[in-house]
């Protein structure tokens, strides 16, 4: 029972990341009809947003270490700590949550620039061309990050308060020794919140209503004198923000490196396809579903029956779904069903 609970939590966690990226992919596809292979790179950029905020906050001064007397020793003290003492130390500790504040406007800017600068010219081109040009962009982005931050993963710790483990066992009355990292719980909560926010935004605001109408029938909405294009551009920026925030929050779980985006992208595409192209609910549901499936498949009990299943379960599910139910779990009938 304990093991199952832990696996479900693990799965939801990973599923949260898949769902957030898949949500952004679906937004871009549903509105602009763009298949964006650079979306994983946006996730990675978000994670490196957290890294750079952390590095900015810890810019240090080299001072003499007075505690060592028999030779000259130096140590690095961050300026923030020198200026503000404990308050400065606390700010550094909270680098990852603080970075969210910077990641949001930054990713919005990147998203809008990308749409206006590149994607705009590819509406009329084939999906293959879209895949190719965004694939090229993804290579460029990840190589730029590699050139600046290096090829090694950069550890980006979560705040000390939540670095320990939460006694989840006690929450559910299952015994004290069942624990789960706090930050992962927070991540799970945050991804739920973001997904909820995106849906609420689309469902309950006028802007969201126009976007949904545009997704259903772009021409008619345009005939009503509404500038659909501008709204879709903003939605693309929003998709970039979702990916970026997901990446920044994921940094403490998986130290960011330059190819993390590609790793997640391939899986997220599979998630989108399983959920059904263009279906937002499908993307989220499939994200969590595949996350949980994957974590169950990596249990030792399962692996001993079917060796290697943990490596391929997601792809296997995708293949089966694509072959027996072409439009995915929740895809609308007739959308990309050929």
């Amino acid at each position: 029972m304990d093991a199952i609970l832990i696996q479900i939590l693990n799965g939801l966690d990973k599923g949260g990341a898949y769902a957030l990226i898949a949500l952004g992919l679906t937004l871009a596809f549903g509105t602009l009809g763009i298949v964006n292979f650079a979306h994983g790179a946006l996730f990675m950029l978000g994670a490196f947003g957290a890294v750079s905020v952390q590095q900015l906050l810890t810019i240090s001064k080299r001072v003499k270490d007075e505690s060592i007397t028999f030779f000259d020793a130096y140590k690095e003290i961050p300026y923030l700590e020198i200026w503000w003492g404990d308050t400065g130390r606390m700010i550094i500790d909270y680098a990852v949550p603080i970075s969210i504040l910077f990641v949001i406007p930054f990713m919005l800017l990147i998203g809008v620039l990308m749409e206006r600068g590149l994607i705009k010219h590819f509406y009329k081109r084939t999906h293959a061309d879209q895949i190719l040009v965004t694939f090229g962009l993804a290579i460029v982005l990840q190589e730029l990050v590699k050139a600046y931050f290096g090829a090694n993963p950069i550890p980006t710790p979560a705040p000390a308060v939540v670095s320990g483990s939460a006694p989840v066992g006690a929450f559910f009355g299952l015994g004290e020794d069942l624990v789960y990292p706090w930050w992962r719980l927070i991540y799970l909560l945050a991804s739920g919140l973001i997904i909820f926010a995106v849906f609420a935004f689309l469902k309950f605001t006028t802007f969201g209503m126009v976007v949904r109408a545009g997704m259903a029938d772009r021409e008619t909405v345009g005939l009503l004198g509404i500038n659909v294009q501008r709204r879709f551009t903003i939605v693309f920026g929003l998709a970039a923000v979702v990916a970026g925030v997901a990446g920044a929050l994921y940094a403490p779980i998986l130290p960011p490196d330059y190819h993390m985006g590609m790793d997640f992208l391939v899986l997220s595409f599979v998630v989108v396809v399983v959920g059904g192209m263009g279906s937002l609910e499908g993307a989220v549901a499939a994200g969590f579903l595949l996350g949980i499936l994957q974590s169950f498949a990596s249990m030792n009990e399962v692996k001993s029956i079917i060796p290697g299943i943990d490596q391929i379960i997601i792809y296997l599910v995708a293949v089966v779904i694509l072959l027996v139910r072409p439009r995915g779990l929740m895809g609308r009938e007739g959308v990309m069903e050929d």
Binding site: H127, I131, F269, V270, Y315, V319, D338
Partner: peptide, 13 residues
């Protein structure tokens, strides 16, 4: 399947 689904399927395999 064709189009993007074909790409994803081959990628998955």
């Amino acid at each position: 399947r064709s189009g993007i689904y074909f790409s994803i399927l081959t990628l998955a395999f």
